[in-house]
């Protein structure tokens, strides 16, 4: 059963017919040709498909596209095109926070979301004081990034990149 939805992706508005079974990830990749979000597990277990959806980091694999009619989506490609990268993307490059690159767009989107959540004062599992404003410590950044798996094991370098983007420089 097809259904027509509209999505704004990286600033471009699209109207697209999707099967009611089509996930947001497949709508992006397969219908719209937006392949920056990656399919790593398709079951919410790896984070490779992470985008910013209505401003927050969000998986696209465990989401039926039809339910997201009208959504505003920013992918890593929308954060910064190749020739005009977002500061977080530059930090990933400088610290070699990537190897095969497949989890990278999701890591980048997640990092942007993490820094925003910290700014809003959201606590995390490792926050000592639930009611205090959390600091972007290494422990906090690692815990918050943990929904994005990297099998190449670039974690140490990704942390360095996110730490720099959090304004902590070379700790």
């Amino acid at each position: 059963m097809d259904s027509e939805i509209s999505l704004t992706v990286d600033g471009r508005r699209h109207t697209v017919a999707v099967d009611t079974r089509t996930t947001l990830l497949d709508a992006l990749r397969d219908r719209l040709g937006v392949t920056s979000p990656k399919k790593g597990c398709d079951h919410g277990q790896c984070g490779s498909c992470t985008v910013l959806l209505d401003g927050r980091r969000h998986l696209t694999c465990l989401a039926l596209a039809v339910s997201y009619d009208g959504a505003e989506i920013v992918t890593a490609a929308g954060l910064g095109p190749e020739d005009d990268l977002h500061p977080i993307q530059e930090a990933f490059l400088d610290h070699d926070g990537l190897q095969c690159g497949y989890c990278t767009p999701g890591q980048v989107c997640s990092a942007v979301g993490v820094l925003d959540e910290l700014k809003q004062g959201h606590p995390s599992h490792v926050s000592q004081d639930l009611e205090a404003t959390p600091e972007p410590s290494d422990d906090e950044l690692r815990e918050r990034m943990s929904g994005n798996l990297c099998r190449c094991g670039a974690y140490a370098n990704i942390l360095a990149a996110v730490r720099e983007a959090a304004g902590r420089g070379q700790a």
């Binding site: 919410g44 984070g47 992470t50 980091r57 465990l62 993490v114 995390s124 599992h125 918050r144 929904g147």
Partner: peptide
């Protein structure tokens, strides 16, 4: 309640 939620899933999934 807050601690239980924060111990579950991932940041992305908790938004969803």
């Amino acid at each position: 309640v807050s601690r239980a939620l924060l111990a579950g899933a991932s940041g992305q999934i908790r938004h969803q």
